[in-house]
Simulated assay, not measured.
Amino acid sequence: MSAGLIAQPQAFRVTVEPAQVDDLRARLARTRWPDQLPGAGWDYGVELGALQSLCRYWERDYDWRGYESRFNAHPQFTSEFEGQPLHFYLRRSPEPDAKPLLLVHGWPGSVVEFHDVIGPLADPRAHGGDPRNAFHVVAPSLPGYGYSGPTRRRGYGADDIAKAFDAIMRSLGYARYFVQGGDWGSLIGTLLGANYSAQVEALHLNVASAPPPDPADPRAGLDAGALADLEHNARIFKTEMAYRELQSTKPGSLAVGLMDSPAGMAGWLLEKFHGWSDCQGDPLNAFTYDKLLDNISLYWLTGTIASSMRLYFEDAHPDRRRTQLPSVSIPTGMARFPAEFLRFPRAWIERKYKVVHWSEMQRGGHFAAMEQPQAFVDDLRLFFARFR
């Protein structure tokens, strides 16, 4: 497939204006909090005390110069492709034999997920690693997310993103490259691996979905572990998937409240970081306030919570919905983290992907690079080493 032409990338640095901070703090101070039933915990959604503590820190103690510093720690650029703004990190390795690697995030994450892994992946020598495992790291913000947003036309979906990301890689001189993805990154990585196989040498995923061989009898031939996966997914579809139904059908209605209320937006996102991570019931077991708020603040400052949710609508719209995802014939590695909120049987995934590497990780959940950066880096090094 043709990559098309991409606008000349321009160097970019994140700057937070004092007026933005003042407005945010005033809104947080005026938050009208809902009631919460005694002992409700997280059963009805976000736990009120946890959210109030996070928002209090955001209003009074969060370091905005620290936000800028963390975002500007690696070289970043903006560009445009087919009328859509694009933002991406580009950390070229000092090692002469480094291989290009595209990292693709998901929702409700962002490029913040990769802040702690870009350095070790690009410069392993400086982080106690083997310099033979170096990568030229490219980590874009999904169109519609953060500094790649908002999206500018109806119908802009995962296929468009895959095309745009391939254009970024080829514009940087990377005719062949590796891809890693989770959440939306898994879908986009799958589309890249299937439709751009001349460019994508190998694919690494930390979550993957696949259909059963026999939809009429999905349990047929599965061992006890795979059957437990299906039972787990059945519970998840009853308790964790309302967000997807809402964002796939009426994202604009939800966006009005989230765009106007920072506490409302923080609550919508914090609930996912609680439910989808290996946090043992408390998000602070998996993330610091600063890490959570770097991600939440990115959505707030750029005004992209609405366009980020629109991606669900575009992917589910009857005119654009796929009947099934394509199969992937390039070598694929899978790292399954124990608290990943959806788990598909290995036998199903191996029918759809050319799986040559499978790791059962010890800790971590949906936000793999953010929760367990060292384990994430180690597994990428291990998998991609065979293609050097």
Rank of each mutant, 00 (worst) to 15 (best):
E371P: 06
D278S: 10
N233F: 07
Y156A: 10
G144C: 00
Y156D: 10
A210R: 06
G109Q: 05
R60G: 07
S359E: 14
D379R: 11
P38Y: 08
Q20M: 10
G173Q: 03
L382Q: 15
F383M: 07
D260V: 02
V21A: 06
T332E: 12
M309C: 15
Q280G: 12
R219L: 04
W358D: 14
P120N: 02
A385L: 10
G281P: 05
V328K: 10
N206R: 06
V104W: 11
E271F: 03
A220I: 07
G106V: 02
R343P: 04
D319P: 12
S327C: 11
V112K: 02
P215H: 08
D290G: 00
L54I: 03
L37N: 14
V356M: 05
N285W: 13
L254K: 09
G281S: 06
K238E: 15
H317Y: 06
F344H: 11
A368L: 09
I118S: 00
P212E: 02
S297Q: 10
D379S: 11
G49E: 10
P108R: 05
R381L: 04
A126T: 12
V377F: 08
E201F: 10
D123F: 00
W358F: 14
G189D: 04
G333V: 04
L270A: 01
D159Y: 14
L269A: 11
Y243L: 06
Q52N: 06
C279F: 00
E350R: 14
E59F: 03
L86A: 00
Y57G: 05
G264I: 01
C279L: 00
E240L: 15
D43C: 13
